[in-house]
């Protein structure tokens, strides 16, 4: 990566507004994410975290505002095009391809998302899949049906599938929800190891100690607006954040 590129933000969300009927889910949200950053996104239920992710990944069309990724306006691009540009995501409630094995789930990503991957030999593809699964600690489950995975394995598989698209930006939507504390540590370590390999990560999470440990910067949303953004300790100390969470 050349020097000027590292200066420019990887992702720039500008004046984004998303309404569902009369309900404003996101209200004039602007944020910049730097390359290589570990970015935490917090906020009470219904504050617009997942809506923001859906607008970035393309699942939702926005009314106003722009999304710029690597200095390209992607506001009107379809989700699969954004995936090819380098934005990958996991889902809050895991959405595996149920009729496939774990390895096949990743092959979908290799087939469709990796640029110039059209003529990769079958054996090489298998190697790529296996190396990603090994990183994720899922190698032994490669040929198991996705329906037979446990909750933590499903989360890991979603991250693995996202990784198979060769993302520059990975968005993890509550990948730790409902996991035990040792499993939370496992997934957190995984995300940390991905971040150390030049992948920018946006992490939505309710588990505060995970957000605090993981993030370079944290943003807190409430009712569709940014109420605080800064280092984890700054955001935690913010009065409005405490009010939003504790409801005082």
């Amino acid at each position: 990566m050349t020097a000027p590129e590292t200066q420019a933000p990887l992702l720039r969300v500008a004046a984004l507004t998303k309404r569902f009927g009369g309900f404003t889910a996101l209200d004039n949200v602007s944020v910049e994410i730097r390359p290589g950053e570990r970015f935490g996104l917090i906020g009470p239920n219904g504050s617009g975290k997942t809506t923001l992710i859906n607008c970035i990944s393309g699942a939702f069309r926005t009314e106003t505002g722009t999304v710029v990724f690597r200095e390209e306006d992607i506001t009107r691009l379809q989700p699969h095009v954004r995936t090819r540009r380098g934005i990958a995501r996991s889902f809050q409630i895991p959405r595996p391809f149920k009729s496939m094995t774990v390895a096949e789930n990743l092959l979908v990503a290799l087939d469709f998302a990796s640029v110039g991957g059209d003529f990769i030999l079958a054996a090489q593809r298998r190697d790529t899949v296996m190396s990603i699964l090994t990183q994720m600690g899922l190698a032994s489950k490669a040929d198991v049906s996705a329906t037979r995975l446990s909750q933590v394995e499903l989360r890991k598989m979603e991250l693995a599938r996202a990784m198979a698209t060769h993302p520059k930006l990975l968005i993890s939507d509550e990948a730790m929800a409902g996991l035990s504390s040792s499993e939370v540590d496992e997934v957190l370590d995984l995300l940390m190891s991905l971040a150390s390999r030049d992948i920018t990560i946006i992490m939505i999470e309710h588990i505060m100690q995970a957000v605090m440990r993981f993030s370079d910067r944290v943003m807190c949303l409430d009712a569709g607006r940014i109420i605080a953004i800064g280092t984890p300790s700054e955001v935690m100390a913010n009065q409005r954040v405490q009010e939003a969470y504790l409801g005082t």
Partner: peptide, 8 residues
Amino acid sequence: AAECTGVP
């Protein structure tokens, strides 16, 4: 999920 995995 397919769309977000790059499937057009």
